[in-house]
Simulated scan of single mutants.
Amino acid sequence: MKSKLDNFLDRDRKLRSWPAKRTNQRIVVEYLSTNFAEGVEYTEAEINEIIKDNHTFNDHCFLRRELVDNRLLGRTSDGSKYWKIPLPEEL
């Protein structure tokens, strides 16, 4: 059975497009956030590489901002460190 998420992934399970609907955008960024481990501090370069490895439309900066804006990744005010914020059901 095909899920809403499948509409935005290629056969390698990489994000291939950005959804127009906000509810689908949330599904996509939550999926993208599963590539980050809790309790690990990442540099911006590490975040960018993980995002680049998991999408195909060449806009890692946009996706990084979406992860932060959706409170799936936290970051220091200077952007030097990032970390995963667990989803409520993961607590």
Rank of each mutant, 00 (worst) to 15 (best):
G39Y: 04
N35M: 14
I27D: 01
M1R: 11
F62L: 11
T23P: 01
N54T: 04
I85E: 12
V28R: 00
E90F: 04
R13H: 15
N58E: 13
N54P: 00
K4N: 14
D53R: 15
Q25K: 08
H60K: 13
L9W: 06
F57V: 05
L32C: 01
K52F: 03
N70C: 12
R64M: 09
D69V: 05
K14N: 09
F62K: 09
K4T: 12
S33Q: 07
D59F: 01
N35S: 14
E44C: 08
L9G: 02
T23D: 13
R16W: 07
T23G: 04
R26Y: 06
S17K: 10
R11T: 11
I27Y: 05
K14L: 06
W18R: 04
E44G: 05
N70M: 10
E41I: 08
K81L: 07
A20I: 10
P88F: 13
T34H: 04
T34N: 12
D10C: 02
R64I: 01
R22K: 14
H60I: 03
T34L: 10
I51T: 01
F8Y: 12
E30D: 14
K52L: 07
H60G: 05
R65G: 09
E49I: 05
E49S: 14
I47K: 00
G39F: 06
V29Y: 00
V40G: 02
T56E: 05
S3K: 09
P88N: 11
I85D: 09
D78R: 06
V29M: 04
